[in-house]
């Protein structure tokens, strides 16, 4: 009992417990403390429900007949799996899914490899203006995407890649400032002697990068990979700009098309919106649970190094 009190007291949820109260009144039954703990648990559970319930509701809506989307209980009276097959029949869902997989894999692989190369250069080599260059890398992180969006569109258009999937990932071949910054932090953590040892053994810098640096920073590389996988999978701006033919759509753009016109034969089908929402989201939730550690560590690391 005492240790539990200690822990909650130390955690500093405001108003959880007055430590003086423990000293002043070591009563076996502490009403105020109990009220606070109940309040604390109620808040915790309440917020958890707020964050999770919409997902459950969406899944439920996706399995209901259209008319019942907004009515009826959480558990549909009759579960309509047909909603899913209906959407697959109506839209090229498989093609969209495949496009999304292709784009996000290409985007994640290319940005991980290129950013790792560049970040390694900033740690391994000593060359003139190194810090100035790195300062430029950091400065470009602040640049709003809207400023460069139009010329980038014109460039890909000029290269003849509008209405293809290429512009959705190929920019990632050229590394990304945020990931260069993140990976540089991790490369800095490797003892310099390891690089020197490889050098003495006659390894080229490329070899040192591949055989010494990369294996030691695997967790950071996975962080970059899953971050970009998520970013590319969820992106809607680039697909909106570059894609025209329905066959080229990614899943999010496909869902946007369904949102734009959810009627079939003049009847609105909200349940199909829900099906689309579930299908776009579920792969991300699966990836998140598989790589949860990396997601959360990545955010915490970049957050705490950001100050």
């Amino acid at each position: 009992m005492a240790t539990r009190e200690e822990r909650i007291g130390r955690s500093f949820v405001p108003g959880v417990r007055h430590p003086e109260a423990v000293a002043a009144a070591p009563a076996p039954f502490d009403v105020r403390g109990l009220v606070r703990r109940v309040l604390f648990i109620a808040l915790l559970v309440g917020f958890t429900v707020l964050f999770i319930y919409p997902f459950i509701w969406l899944v439920s809506a996706s399995l209901k007949p259209g008319r019942e989307v907004f009515s009826g209980g959480l558990i549909p009276e009759t579960i309509r799996w047909e909603n899913y097959s209906e959407l697959f029949n109506q839209q090229p869902m498989l093609q969209w899914t495949w496009n999304s997989i292709l784009v996000s894999m290409a985007a994640a692989v290319s940005v991980t490899v290129s950013s790792a190369l560049v970040a390694f250069a900033f740690v391994f080599f000593r060359f003139p203006y190194r810090n100035v260059l790195f300062g430029i890398v950091l400065a470009t992180m602040m640049l709003p995407g809207a400023v460069t969006m139009i010329p980038q569109y014109l460039i890909w258009d000029f290269l003849g890649w509008r209405n293809t999937l290429v512009p959705l990932w190929a920019g990632n071949l050229f590394a990304s400032p945020f990931y260069i910054f993140l990976l540089r932090q991790f490369f800095l953590g490797i003892p310099r002697e390891l690089f020197d040892a490889a050098n003495v053994d006659g390894a080229s810098p490329l070899r040192t990068w591949w055989s010494v640096a990369l294996p030691l920073t695997m967790p950071a590389l996975i962080v970059v990979f899953v971050f970009e996988l998520k970013a590319a999978w969820t992106d809607i701006v680039k697909p909106l700009i570059f894609l025209e033919d329905i066959e080229q759509f990614t899943l999010p753009l496909g869902l946007k098309a369904i949102v734009d016109n959810p009627s079939i034969g003049g009847e609105l089908h909200f349940e199909l919106l829900a099906v689309g929402g579930v299908l776009v989201t579920v792969p991300m939730i699966v990836i998140f649970f598989l790589a949860q550690r990396y997601f959360l560590e990545g955010i915490a690391t970049t957050g705490s190094t950001g100050r």
């Binding site: 809607i236 909200f270 776009v280 989201t281």
Partner: peptide, 13 residues
């Protein structure tokens, strides 16, 4: 981790 389009769709509902 929910795609922005899915968030928009969900909140339309």
């Amino acid at each position: 981790v929910t795609p922005a389009v899915a968030v928009g769709t969900l909140f339309l509902l």
